[in-house]
């Protein structure tokens, strides 16, 4: 269990520190059923300012505390103290306000995968509140851990993961915030992302850059042509992602396109990827 107090304590005011100590005492006395009384008070008593932490790895959890706020960390402390049932944890979200929901979701990143994880990741699939999608699914490897624990049919499944990634694409959220997300690239997901890209292009809108990274890992019909097209795109981020996709695909028939692009590529980082293609 991760002890977040050493990171939290320096950013607490005296009043906030006193409130948290009192809240923990009350929780020890009254149990997890008291969490719904304490949770609404977290944001206004502890504060919404940044925690200022760094990326930490605890057992199989990988979490970027730079995305956390002081109230998120205090919420984790209370949840760790109370060890609520899945029903109580889920209820903190379902009947919480915007802030409570965010805090309840952030805490999942350090928790073992369980019923609450699956239920709440399901909730964020249905929300358009970006703050909640971010708090539950990003800045950690929670989603990948959830697929690890789930699988094809149970818990958080590969199909759930595919819908999650598609929602990231829809919201234009960078893949790098879903740690290790490329591990579950699949032909089915590539198909979904390419169809979505085609819709976007038909509407004259930008394609999610990370599409190229996913499809390079798990090609399907149309992948190669899309990757080659990406190498000549006017946007630097798209060209970089396409170059990485070509590299990861490892298809010798695409090497010539990378070599053709190389002399005209102005960006050093992209050139380095192109040079690595084809050995």
């Amino acid at each position: 269990m991760y002890d977040i107090l050493p990171v939290l304590d320096p950013v607490l005011t005296d009043d906030a520190r006193a409130w948290l100590a009192k809240a923990r005492e009350t929780l020890a006395e009254k149990g997890a059923a008291h969490l719904p009384i304490l949770f609404p008070q977290l944001a206004r008593t502890i504060g919404r300012h940044g925690l200022g932490g760094a990326r930490v790895q605890v057992e199989d959890a990988d979490v970027d505390l730079a995305a956390w706020r002081a109230c998120d960390a205090a919420g984790l402390v209370l949840i760790q103290d109370a060890n609520p049932s899945a029903a109580v944890h889920t209820d903190l979200f379902l009947h919480g306000d915007i802030e409570e929901r965010t805090i309840a979701l952030r805490a999942l990143a350090f928790q073992p995968i369980g019923e609450a994880t699956v239920d709440l990741l399901g909730e964020i699939q249905r929300t358009n509140t970006t703050a909640h999608f971010e708090a539950g699914g990003l800045d950690s490897n929670l989603v990948v851990r959830a697929v690890d624990a789930g699988g094809e049919d149970a818990g958080f499944t590969r199909a759930d993961f595919n819908r999650f990634v598609l929602k990231m694409a829809f919201s234009d959220l960078p893949l790098e915030r879903a740690f290790d997300g490329l591990r579950y690239a699949s032909a089915e997901l590539s198909h979904m992302l390419q169809d979505f890209a085609t819709e976007r292009e038909a509407a004259g809108r930008a394609v999610w850059t990370d599409t190229y990274r996913f499809i390079g890992r798990a090609p399907t019909e149309g992948t190669r042509a899309r990757l080659v097209g990406g190498l000549e795109h006017g946007d630097d981020g798209t060209r970089l992602a396409a170059a990485e996709g070509v590299r990861d695909l490892g298809d010798a028939s695409l090497t010539a396109y990378a070599k053709e692009r190389l002399p005209r590529e102005p960006r050093e980082g992209i050139r380095a990827v192109l040079e690595a293609i084809g050995g």
Binding site: L38, P40, R44, H95, D97, E99
Partner: peptide, 9 residues
């Protein structure tokens, strides 16, 4: 009500 009386707003 004790829970809802603690909400922001």
């Amino acid at each position: 009500l004790p829970r809802y009386c603690q909400k922001d707003g």
